[in-house]
Design a protein around this nucleic acid. Structure first.
Length: 910
RNA sequence: GCGGGGGUAGCAAAGCCUGGUCAAAUGCGCAGGACUUAAGAUCCUGUCUCUCAGUGAGUUCCUGGGUUCGAAUCCCAGCCCCCGCACCA
């Protein structure tokens, strides 16, 4: 488009991608086009995007996420599904509170205004949400149900309070869940996390560890997300073994996955912060020394203690334990590499068969004992440079000698169980979910602390416990503590003076069930309406970032299971299918303010309109992969869309029946291609090959536009209509405009996906046209080349489509086909003939056998002729050469030739 | 270490599941042409190597083997890259 045209199209409101967007957004709004309700007569589809934290402005990641979701929802709607496609805001959290501290703003107002801004941008992009179902977690009508669920979980014993070492972020001034600590740092601000020992509220997610693990198998999720969850849950089977403390009747219980090495234990190691340590060393001459060690190691930050390259360090306690199976006396050590919160916090060490124990034993000169011998060689303790962790046969293991070590694991465990010295067990890495937060902007935990009755739940009828307004934001301590009205209350049991819990809930609590709320957002008797949930849930397609692989996605699964066990749900998993979309990059890096490479969606919408932004973001990369932002790419899309709008909006709606027999080959070809695509595109969208779908559509559209003069009105209208329908999920505003212009009075957004007419599909013709392009370029090349070389100019060219050896082949295959249908046999037979031994031979045979009609001419004579005629015209135009097509009339050859047109020979004539 | 995903032309990126229409879509880059006073835009063509007035030949999809009439595609082994988890006993 040149400047003039550009101006024209921008001045002409009809052709302006921006102004039509507004227009159709208003129409959708006024007609409540995307409002849905439960309709048992229709199949439902629940399409969900991870709801945003309302920071006020959309970033490209949001645009990508929602463009994917919206096109999917729109596509499903066109396929006839009753589509639930909602939006909401995860609107509790620190930024609002920080704004309050910094700028003295009211968190509620601040949040509301951020939501308003964000929503406006979402509306500008034309997403087809049912805005009547908006869910905002900071509103009492939502968080009331957080509290309700909290109380239900509490009743069920899924919530408890305990004192433990917790992760404390000094920057956010709150505790964090394990899932929120990444590499020893806060997930939000990346500050190094410290350890604090305080009493906090926990959610018993570990009660569901096994089910959370097992049910992963039934989910249609990206493998890597499932793997991350599996790792996080970290199930391992092993054995608990009791070692007697020497000169005492105390037991030291260890967890091991290698009971087969039990006879090789030469020492025990205890986590330094283990509660047994003080009594163990009390009154011994090692007491001071050990205490000093514990102080040093435990005070060290969590992050560095568990770092990979951290050197193993330990200290002997002076005490011994007794190995139950052989009565051996083994020394007890403390060491920094043993973790209190995994297993029992006490480890049996077998230096010969565990690398860590090996290193530790070397460093502290502890003896070693070999108990497993590899099958193919002998080992000697003195020669060992590292532990032998492989398979083998047991030695030095009493009655178990000679057993295969895998077998020994079971036998030894069984033996321990019989003797009462140990038992089989399962360990998880998953820890209970700490949900207390010492911050203001969250759901108040509905508990009251009575001096007499301890923690007492707030009665259901008193919900919600509202966030007070009269609080001080000082940046120090929990603001809730500053509201006397809030803190001071009466005990629900005795009516005496009591204090409210001032901790609030982790915001991940809010997001763990919001998808249920969407099904019945105004329900006021329960968190959600059971019937509505029954109709809509589970979510059929969930779309969001990978960063929630073990946070939100794990918590929501847990909530679903827990709510099921309370009797509110009757399914096990919330999200059937998950797409984790890739990041949006600029210059190979994630967009960030500090790098200054942020592209603001607002500006893009302003400049190019929403359809361009959506189309680009969907077409530039496959959804799971990273997307590199490209200004030129956006320009190209913009031009393409303008071209489509310009060309298609001049057309009329289809009212003529197409008389297929009378069509020329170009028309048949375009029809065939369009109708093939109807199915292909639907499949591509379903499988999130969105970029491929758009690529195919672009190619087809360009082809149609290019050859529109060769198409009859009926065909052009028909094809344009179908293409517009197929583009509608992606560029809905433009398509509404075109649809309307064509003379339809319906909304294209609510139209049906086009139906494939199989009669229009002609694969051979499509092939023919592919070959045509090659022939054309060959001819032009040859002409240019020859003219250059010879200095002569040519006015005529003769094309000969013939392939002598193929005819021979055809005859032979035909003869053989009477005998057998076995491809291999036919091929072998024919390959025996030297004259026919060619690269393509076997391919041709395959084709013939699969489709014997080729032998009597697959494409009709008429097709061939119309095709060639078209072709002739086109060639002449492009090459300024008169083409003489030589059709050999000998029936057999002609038929073969028609069936399989090869690359023709070119003869130029002066 | 455990687990996941990859390695395709100058680059980016399809194809692989379901082997043959694959010298391999598409985009970028590069080259040539058309249109233009020119630039831009647009359109057309080419872009592994050789050959070339004639349907051509050779060598390719990380490497090496295998299956098959036929392999980018299936199987085995190896090399390399990216990502997640990790002193979890």
């Amino acid at each position: 488009m040149n400047e003039n045209q550009k101006e024209q199209s921008e001045n002409n409101p009809k052709l302006n991608l921006k102004s039509i967007a507004k227009k159709w957004q208003n129409v959708w709004k006024e007609t409540h086009a995307f409002k849905v309700s439960e309709d048992p007569s229709k199949k439902k589809f629940y399409c969900l995007e991870m709801f945003p934290y309302p920071s006020g402005k959309l970033h490209m990641g949001h645009v990508r996420n929602y463009s994917l979701g919206d096109s999917y929802a729109r596509f499903k709607r066109m396929q006839g599904y009753n589509v639930l496609y909602p939006m909401g805001y995860d609107s509790f959290g620190l930024p609002a509170e920080n704004a309050a501290i910094k700028h003295k703003e009211d968190p509620e107002e601040w949040t509301a205004s951020c939501i308003a801004m964000m929503r406006e941008q979402q509306e500008q992009l034309g997403f087809s949400y049912d805005w009547d179902r908006i869910v905002e977690t900071y509103k009492p009508e939502y968080y009331k149900w957080n509290q309700w669920i909290f109380l239900k979980f509490y009743e069920k014993g899924l919530i408890y309070r305990k004192k433990s070492a917790v992760n404390w972020c000094p920057h956010c001034k709150t505790v964090l869940a394990n899932e929120q600590v990444i590499d020893g740092r806060c997930w939000r601000c990346h500050t190094k996390v410290e350890v604090k020992h305080i009493e906090q509220w926990f959610l018993k997610i570990t009660a569901y560890a096994d089910e959370l693990l097992k049910d992963l198998d039934q989910l249609d999720w990206p493998e890597r997300v499932k793997v991350m969850q599996r790792n996080w849950i970290g199930r391992s089977e092993g054995t608990l073994v009791n070692f007697k403390l020497e000169n005492s009747d105390k037991n030291l219980q260890v967890f091991t996955t290698r009971p087969d090495t039990l006879f090789g234990v030469t020492f025990l190691v205890i986590a330094p912060e283990h509660p047994i340590v003080p009594e163990l060393i009390k009154g011994t001459d090692k007491e001071e020394e050990v205490k000093e060690f514990v102080r040093r190691v435990v005070i060290e930050e969590k992050a560095t203690r568990t770092a990979e390259d951290k050197e193993k360090e330990g200290i002997f306690t002076g005490k011994y334990a007794v190995n139950p199976v052989n009565g051996e006396k083994v020394p007890i050590y403390l060491a920094n590499f043993v973790l209190l919160d995994y297993g029992t916090g006490i480890v049996m060490a077998v230096p010969t068969h565990d690398q860590r124990d090996f290193e530790f034993a070397k460093k502290y000169n502890i003896p070693m004992k070999l108990v497993i011998k590899p099958k193919d060689k002998d080992l000697k303790v003195e020669d060992m440079k590292e532990a032998y962790e492989g398979e083998g046969v047991l030695i030095n293991s009493g009655d178990f000698n000679g057993l295969d070590n895998e077998e020994a694991k079971e036998k030894i465990t069984k033996y321990l169980e019989e003797k009462g010295w140990g038992k089989k067990t399962v360990q998880y890495k998953l820890r209970d979910w700490l949900i207390s937060r010492q911050r203001y902007w969250g759901t108040p935990i509905p508990m009251i602390k009575c001096p007499k009755h301890g923690y007492v739940p707030v009665p259901y009828e008193d919900l919600p416990v509202l966030l007070p307004k009269d609080v001080q934001f000082t940046g120090e301590g929990n603001p809730l503590k500053t509201s006397e009205n809030f803190v001071k209350t009466k005990c629900p049991i005795c009516g005496e003076e009591a204090e409210r819990e001032t901790d609030t809930m982790d915001t991940f609590f809010d997001s763990s069930w919001y998808f249920l709320r969407y099904t019945s957002p105004r329900e006021d008797k329960l968190p959600f309406n059971k019937e509505a949930v029954k109709y809509w849930m589970p979510v059929d397609q969930y779309i969001g970032g990978i960063e929630h692989a073990v946070l939100h996605l794990l918590y929501s699964r847990f909530f679903t299971k827990a709510l099921r066990d309370i009797g509110l749900l009757d399914f096990d998993e919330p999200f059937k299918r998950l797409l984790t979309q890739g990041m949006v990059l600029k210059d190979g890096e994630a967009m960030s303010k500090s790098k200054g490479n942020v592209v603001d969606p607002g500006e893009i919408i302003d400049k190019y309109g929403p359809d361009t932004a959506r189309f680009f973001v969907l077409s530039a990369a496959s959804p799971e992969k990273e997307l590199e932002w490209s200004t030129e790419g956006v320009d190209k899309v913009y031009k393409f869309l303008n071209k489509v709008l310009e060309t298609f909006s001049g057309l009329k709606k289809t009212n003529e029946e197409i008389n297929y027999e009378t069509l020329n080959s170009k028309e048949k070809y375009i029809l065939s291609k369009t109708h093939s695509l109807i199915k292909e595109i639907a499949e591509d969208i379903t499988n999130f090959r969105t970029n491929i779908a758009l690529l195919k559509l672009t190619n087809l559209t360009n082809e149609v536009i290019k050859s529109k003069d060769k198409l009859s009105e009926a065909v052009l209208n028909e094809v344009a209509e179908e293409i517009t329908l197929m583009l509608a999920p992606f560029t809905p505003h433009m398509c509404e405009e075109i649809w309307h212009d064509m003379g339809h009075d319906t909304l294209i957004s609510l139209e049906k996906w086009p139906e494939q007419n199989k009669n229009f599909i002609d694969e051979k013709l499509e092939r023919l046209h592919t070959i045509k392009d090659k022939v054309k370029s060959d001819l032009i090349n040859t002409k240019n080349l020859v003219q250059k070389k010879t200095g002569k100019s040519f006015t005529k060219a003769k094309l000969i489509i013939s392939d002598k050896w193929k005819y021979e082949l055809f005859d032979k295959v035909k003869a053989l086909l009477n005998k057998t249908r076995n491809i291999s046999e036919i091929i072998k037979e024919i390959m025996a003939d030297e004259r026919l031994k060619r690269k393509e031979t076997s391919q041709l045979i395959q084709k013939i056998v699969k489709n014997p009609s080729l032998l009597i001419g697959g494409i009709t004579q008429k097709d061939e002729e119309t095709f060639l005629k078209d072709f002739e015209d086109e060639l002449e135009k492009d090459t300024k050469l008169k083409i003489i097509l030589e059709l050999e009339q000998d029936s057999k050859e002609a038929k073969a030739k028609q069936a399989l047109p090869g690359k023709p020979a070119i003869i130029l004539l002066e």
